[in-house]
Simulated assay, not measured.
Amino acid sequence: MDILSMVGILLGLVAILGGAVAKGSSLDALWNLAAFLIVVVGTLGATLVQARTQVFLHAFKMFPWVFMPPRLDTQEMIKHIVEWSHLSRKEGLLGLETLSEEEPDPFVRKGLQLLVDGAEPQALRQILEADLDNREAFDVQGAKVFESMGIYSPTLGIIGAVMGLMAVMQNLADPAKLGHGIAAAFVATIYGVALANLFFLPVANKLKGVVQARVSYQTMLLEGLISIAEGENPRNIENKLSGFIQG
Rank of each mutant, 00 (worst) to 15 (best):
V7N: 01
L10A: 14
L13K: 04
I16A: 14
L17C: 13
V21H: 06
A22R: 12
K23T: 08
K23W: 02
K23H: 15
G24S: 01
G24D: 01
S25C: 03
L27M: 04
L30R: 07
W31K: 05
N32A: 05
A34H: 06
F36Q: 01
L37M: 12
L37G: 11
I38E: 01
I38L: 07
V39Y: 00
V39S: 00
G42C: 02
L44Y: 08
G45H: 02
G45V: 05
L48A: 06
V49F: 05
Q50E: 04
T53R: 14
T53F: 15
T53N: 11
Q54D: 15
Q54R: 15
V55Q: 07
A59T: 09
F60D: 08
F63A: 15
W65F: 09
V66G: 02
D73E: 15
D73Q: 07
T74L: 04
T74N: 01
Q75S: 12
Q75L: 07
Q75I: 05
M77T: 10
M77C: 08
K79Q: 13
I81E: 03
E83P: 00
H86W: 06
H86F: 09
S88F: 02
R89E: 00
K90G: 00
L96R: 01
L96V: 03
T98P: 00
T98E: 10
S100R: 04
E102C: 00
G111A: 07
Q113Y: 02
L115T: 04
L115W: 04
L115Y: 02
D117Q: 09
A119T: 08
A123P: 00
R125M: 06
Q126H: 11
A130S: 12
A130V: 05
L132V: 09
L132M: 13
R135G: 15
A137M: 09
D139Y: 08
D139V: 00
V140Q: 10
A143E: 10
A143R: 10
V145R: 03
V145F: 03
M149E: 02
S153H: 04
G157N: 04
G157R: 02
M163R: 04
G164M: 05
M166E: 05
Q170K: 15
K177V: 13
G179I: 12
H180I: 13
A184I: 05
A185V: 09
A185D: 07
A188V: 12
A188Q: 12
A188R: 09
A188D: 11
T189W: 08
G192H: 11
V193S: 12
V193F: 11
A194N: 11
A196Y: 11
A196K: 12
L198M: 15
F199W: 13
L201Q: 15
L201A: 11
A204E: 08
N205A: 11
K206A: 12
L207F: 13
L207Q: 08
G209E: 08
A213G: 11
V215W: 02
S216Q: 12
S216W: 03
Q218N: 14
T219K: 13
L221W: 01
E223N: 11
G224R: 03
L225I: 09
I226P: 00
I226W: 00
S227G: 14
A229E: 02
E232Q: 14
E232N: 07
N233T: 06
R235D: 08
I237T: 09
I237F: 06
E238I: 03
E238A: 14
N239W: 10
N239I: 13
K240M: 08
S242L: 07
F244L: 06
Q246C: 04
